[in-house]
Computed example of a mutant assay.
Amino acid sequence: MDKRKMKISSLKSVKPIHSFLLTSLVLVFIWSAYKPYQLGTWFLEVTPVVLGAFIIIYTYNKFRLTTPVYLLLCLGAIIVLIGGHYTYGKVPLFNWLKDSFYLGRNYYDRFGHFINGFVWALTLREILLRISSFQKGNCL
């Protein structure tokens, strides 16, 4: 099979939900890049998301993760993109929560760290289950 046919057949194997997640991520990235609060901060916050997206796209046919993990990775990336656009301390929804509940600060950074920690834990669990001798459900 020539290379062109291989590329076409590999594109056909992309699940529609995965295409939707990638499209959503690209749209949020474009929004995030449009007039961010601080361009330098935005660049530093968004760079890992861009690198991670390229790694996931590159390895998609060789090491495909499950749809729930892709969904969580997209959610975590969107949270980072929103935080990068406004800077974490100025996200409007969390400013509203701060004012409504008389909180001392905007807690978007804690929310983002919690969600991304959860995302990374589940992603690494899936990778370890597939590449190591760990068995699902077995403890040490």
Rank of each mutant, 00 (worst) to 15 (best):
R4P: 09
R4I: 10
K5E: 15
K5G: 10
K5R: 13
M6G: 06
K7V: 11
S9K: 11
K12V: 11
K12T: 12
S13V: 05
K15L: 11
P16K: 12
P16D: 08
P16A: 11
I17F: 09
H18T: 14
H18I: 13
S19V: 10
S19G: 10
S19M: 10
F20R: 12
F20P: 09
F20C: 12
L22R: 05
L22D: 00
S24A: 14
S24M: 08
S24L: 13
L25F: 11
L25I: 10
V26N: 01
V28P: 00
F29I: 05
F29C: 02
I30W: 01
I30T: 04
I30M: 05
W31F: 06
W31P: 04
S32M: 04
S32L: 03
Y34V: 14
Q38S: 14
Q38V: 15
L39A: 02
G40F: 12
T41H: 09
F43A: 08
L44K: 13
L44R: 11
T47R: 14
T47N: 01
V49Y: 01
V49T: 05
L51H: 10
L51K: 13
I55T: 11
I56A: 15
N61L: 08
K62E: 07
L65I: 01
T66D: 03
T66R: 04
T67W: 01
T67Q: 08
T67P: 03
T67K: 04
T67Y: 05
P68N: 05
V69M: 04
V69I: 07
V69L: 00
L71A: 11
L72R: 02
L73S: 03
L73A: 02
C74R: 00
L75D: 00
G76E: 02
A77F: 04
A77S: 07
L81A: 07
I82S: 02
I82R: 04
I82P: 01
I82H: 01
I82G: 01
G83D: 06
H85M: 05
Y86D: 03
Y88F: 10
G89C: 04
K90W: 05
K90N: 08
P92F: 06
N95D: 12
N95K: 14
W96I: 13
D99E: 15
Y102M: 07
G104N: 14
G104K: 15
G104R: 15
Y108M: 13
Y108L: 12
D109I: 14
F111T: 02
F114W: 15
F114T: 15
I115D: 08
N116H: 13
N116L: 09
N116R: 15
N116S: 14
N116I: 14
G117S: 15
G117F: 15
F118M: 07
F118E: 03
V119D: 00
V119K: 01
A121C: 10
A121S: 13
L122G: 08
L122T: 07
L122H: 10
T123Q: 02
L124S: 09
L124N: 11
I127N: 02
I127C: 03
L129A: 06
L129V: 03
S133G: 12
F134K: 05
Q135K: 03
Q135S: 06
K136W: 11
K136D: 14
K136I: 08
K136P: 07
K136N: 14
G137F: 08
